[in-house]
Design a protein around this nucleic acid. Sequence first.
DNA 1: TCGTTACCATACGCATGCGCATTGACAGCG
DNA 2: CGCTGTCAATGCGCATGCGTATGGTAACGA
Lengths: 192, 192
Amino acid sequence: MNARQKTERTRLSAEDWEHGALELIAESGVNALAVEALARRLGVTKGSFYWHFRNREALLLAALERWEQHDEADVLAQIEPIDDPRERLREIFHRVAREVQSHRIYAALLKALDHPVVLPLMTRVSQRRIQFLTEAYLQAAMPPKQAGHRARLAYAAFVGFLQLNLALGMPRLSHEEFDAYVEHVAETLIPH
Amino acid sequence: MNARQKTERTRLSAEDWEHGALELIAESGVNALAVEALARRLGVTKGSFYWHFRNREALLLAALERWEQHDEADVLAQIEPIDDPRERLREIFHRVAREVQSHRIYAALLKALDHPVVLPLMTRVSQRRIQFLTEAYLQAAMPPKQAGHRARLAYAAFVGFLQLNLALGMPRLSHEEFDAYVEHVAETLIPH
DNA sequence: TCGTTACCATACGCATGCGCATTGACAGCG
DNA sequence: CGCTGTCAATGCGCATGCGTATGGTAACGA
């Protein structure tokens, strides 16, 4: 009577648990990822969980590695095809501004940098992205040292932007003002 | 025999608890602020705590308000006397870069923006700081709308810089490289 | 000197959350 | 038809952390 009222459930796989974990993280942060809470969400109890994973930490690690390889990877893949480096940089800024939702997991991980599982992952991801930005600036004919610094600055602005937007509702800008802001950022951070 | 091995302790006041709370937050974040842990740190038990405060939340609120009124306030006070707006902006950037430690509480609060006590405080603080930056840019002869956008950008860069520095050990830059980076930021974000 | 106040200790109840052990359900295959 | 491996439910022990109750003690004023 009271079973399977969700979307016609069958059995669960480790992958199902990982997806559920990522959803939970995106919604409520890393701390909210609790075994029993997630089990309730999936319509089972934690007896199931400990068949698939050694412990909570193992789930977190598996979920984050999945995120790194999928979601994270195709962010860059979508932008790489653009040839003109300046145009590519502009596209990055506009994309980041528009698709704030897709960065919710990243923002949640930023708040959990003290966690031993999260730290090395975020170190990798951040270094990769800064590296990507650096190369874009280099291709835009910026001298090497300056390119590195500018990439760091742009990335810091991105991270801060996420914080101020997702957590704080900081901007409180109208649509037009927001577009003008993004345009200003592009003007300021992309060489002419 | 086992009592009072710390610095000759007498009785504690509410203020002592608030200071201890801020230290804990700076070291290990808002979540680490636990009543019993802090009591151990202060060499007493929680029996003392619940005499001074109604509950954990009340301590957090009191501690953060203390921080807002003291530490936070004189950050601006130190910079305000500088007359030339461009010079003032440069001083802000260099100060922020040099005195990273003093921003540890701010960085810890950034990670706890989902907490109902932290959110309104950080909203106030951030708006005040952005406002301050906006006025500095205005005084530097920047047109109004542009000044607002630039202030937002600079502040986002500041927030991201804190995250990447304190939590991640991102930069891993030598002293000279670091100075060059800060100089680059000033060059990029301050009008000529 | 005696009582009051301010501060602290001890002990408990309660909730949450992890991890483990045991048992049960069910499918596929021989 | 029954065995075996896979997945899930139940229940327990343990730890942590909040909040409360109650009792103790040192300091200070009257």
